[in-house]
Amino acid sequence: MTEEILRSTGLRASYITHLFGMNREVKVVDDVSLSIRKNEVFGIAGESGCGKTTLLKLIAGFCRPPLKVQSGSVEFMGDPGKPLSLLEATDEELYGIRWRQISYIMQGSMNVLNPVRRIYKSFIDFAYPHMGRMAEKDFRDSVTAHLDKLRLGKEVLDSYPHELSGGMRQRVTIGLATICSPSIIIADEPTTALDVVVQRETLGLMKRLQRELGHTIILVTHDLAVHANMADRIAIMYAGTIAEEGSTKDIFEAPAHPYTQHLIRSLPHIGDKERKGYLKGAPPNLADPPAGCRFHPRCPIAIARCAQEAPSLKACSGGTRAACFLAD
């Protein structure tokens, strides 16, 4: 259970642009080390523009200019004893693991599915080239069997995306991502566009498939309520850095970082009318992040040291690991 499947160490990456002779560097991912285990749901939480999606791109080995990796590595342990460095792999190596080993569920299902092709054609486009030398007839049978697991009927295969409801379309994209039984599924805001009722059903489906097929899910969403009910472990990102990580239970019950504490405290839930506080200021501009700890301008308990050096993750008594000098 605790075997590692993906590890990033000291990952730093920036978007570098040259415009009219001006060099601009946006440090989006700064010193991120993660260790993701086999068969777990690993949640990454953070606000918009904090580098979640860029981190996912790097984890998927998709690094194109203007995104540039400065240091650090991402290793994928798909083959026991033979880790593959995703940032140095050749295109052929990456093609070999894409979709077969690492696949994605994206946010807008309408944008993922080609609107002028029937659903089955999308399966052919996405997954068939990765199925090895399978006859197309067998492929159709396996797709039908797979959709049955997702509680979608055969008729879905011959429908166009616009004929399906949002929930059904998201089921189809989950089907696309799981058909090759990959070992890692990256889900970027998979339920943000869905209604509450459909959201719960979709999350339930993802959890059930994960238990049946035994893959790892890297779940990225800003919605902590989703993490609370889905993830085994969570990393909280703030302005390109990991502020805190730990098991879901510890993060929610004993958060050590002031940012996490604030996030957890300000979550409203039914049956609670107590007035919630909020943080002053706004997340920093990553082209010009504050020196030291990136959270210190907004932090209610910041000390002088916070403005000078950046804290690194350390173990805290609550069971989590937090990047804060004052956490214990």
Binding site: R200, A228, I270
Partner: peptide, 19 residues
């Protein structure tokens, strides 16, 4: 269906897809 932001407090039933 509203997810409660406390770990494991909502049961994630996997119902049929809505119409």
């Amino acid at each position: 269906s509203a997810l409660d932001p406390r770990p494991g407090s909502t049961s994630l039933a996997d119902g049929a897809a809505a119409t």
